Simulated scan of single mutants.
Amino acid sequence: MTTQGDLPAHWQQLFGGPPAMRLASATAAGGGGGGGEADLAHSGGPWTKASVAAGELRVTTAEGLGKMSAAHEGIAAGTAGLGATAALAAVRESWERRVSAVRDECGSVQGALLNVAREIGEVDVNNKVAFSQLVIKQDADR
């Protein structure tokens, strides 16, 4: 593994100072989280919200497919013999496949995200219980 000091001078000029890592939600060094809290909170929030968004997108795409189907009813009969009718049907079939794939993927992702939210929530609850027991034990030892 190469460290910053092992790089040739011209590479060090390109890369600048040593690399730093921090949580996206954290403020500058020593500060708390972006919301003003010092805790890293992940349960009850982003995973659940992402699951809800995926579910809403699944429903919206399903509704869109229904509207698209209704909008095309009777077009083939009313425009029989026109070249544009076949082209329109091909485009519609292509979009139906794509939107259906998005709908199906959102349904799949929705469940996976919800499972992660549940698992993280269970871990958080277990950690909270373990820490509270530790505090009680420390208070008893004093």
Score class of each variant (00 low, 15 high):
residue 98 R to H: 10
residue 78 G to C: 00
residue 21 M to C: 10
residue 94 S to M: 10
residue 4 Q to T: 15
residue 72 H to Q: 08
residue 117 A to E: 13
residue 127 N to R: 12
residue 57 L to T: 04
residue 124 D to R: 06
residue 87 A to F: 05
residue 115 N to P: 00
residue 57 L to W: 00
residue 32 G to R: 00
residue 25 S to Q: 15
residue 84 A to S: 15
residue 11 W to Y: 14
residue 129 V to T: 15
residue 67 K to L: 08
residue 35 G to S: 14
residue 132 S to F: 03
residue 27 T to W: 09
residue 12 Q to V: 11
residue 86 A to C: 02
residue 91 V to S: 08
residue 47 W to L: 04
residue 113 L to V: 02
residue 52 V to Q: 13
residue 38 A to G: 13
residue 106 C to L: 06
residue 78 G to F: 06
residue 102 V to K: 00
residue 122 E to H: 05
residue 39 D to W: 03
residue 86 A to W: 00
residue 33 G to M: 13
residue 13 Q to K: 15
residue 129 V to N: 12
residue 57 L to Y: 05
residue 103 R to F: 02
residue 21 M to I: 13
residue 85 T to A: 14
residue 131 F to Y: 08
residue 24 A to Q: 10
residue 118 R to E: 13
residue 45 G to H: 09
residue 111 G to D: 08
residue 121 G to K: 03
residue 25 S to W: 13
residue 12 Q to Y: 07
residue 8 P to W: 06
residue 7 L to K: 10
residue 51 S to N: 01
residue 142 R to P: 02
residue 80 A to E: 12
residue 37 E to Q: 09
residue 13 Q to C: 06
residue 84 A to K: 05
residue 56 E to C: 02
residue 99 V to T: 14
residue 62 A to I: 14
residue 6 D to V: 03
residue 54 A to S: 05
residue 75 I to C: 03
residue 125 V to F: 14
residue 105 E to W: 07
residue 128 K to G: 02
residue 94 S to V: 01
residue 56 E to I: 06
residue 49 K to I: 02
residue 88 L to P: 01
residue 29 A to I: 01
residue 63 E to R: 14
residue 130 A to K: 12
residue 94 S to N: 13
residue 41 A to H: 06
residue 81 G to E: 00
residue 127 N to G: 00
residue 114 L to M: 12
residue 5 G to D: 13
residue 83 G to I: 02
residue 41 A to V: 14
residue 104 D to T: 01
residue 60 T to D: 15
residue 75 I to Y: 11
residue 60 T to F: 15
residue 39 D to I: 10
residue 112 A to K: 14
residue 51 S to Q: 06
residue 46 P to K: 12
residue 117 A to F: 08
residue 99 V to N: 05
residue 19 P to A: 13
residue 103 R to Y: 03
residue 57 L to S: 07
residue 50 A to F: 03
residue 69 S to W: 15
residue 66 G to Y: 12
residue 82 L to D: 09
residue 39 D to M: 03
residue 31 G to E: 07
residue 90 A to F: 03
residue 59 V to E: 10
residue 15 F to K: 10
residue 9 A to H: 02
residue 140 A to W: 04
residue 47 W to N: 03
residue 35 G to T: 12
residue 1 M to K: 14
residue 26 A to E: 13
residue 137 K to T: 11
residue 106 C to R: 06
residue 100 S to Y: 07
residue 56 E to S: 08
residue 91 V to G: 05
residue 5 G to N: 12
residue 126 N to E: 10
residue 20 A to W: 02
residue 60 T to S: 15
residue 46 P to M: 13
residue 66 G to T: 12
residue 76 A to N: 09
residue 86 A to K: 11
residue 93 E to G: 04
residue 16 G to F: 05
residue 43 S to G: 10
residue 47 W to Q: 01
residue 97 R to Q: 15
residue 39 D to N: 08
residue 129 V to H: 04
residue 36 G to Q: 10
residue 24 A to H: 08
residue 62 A to H: 10
residue 10 H to S: 09
residue 136 I to C: 06
residue 127 N to C: 09
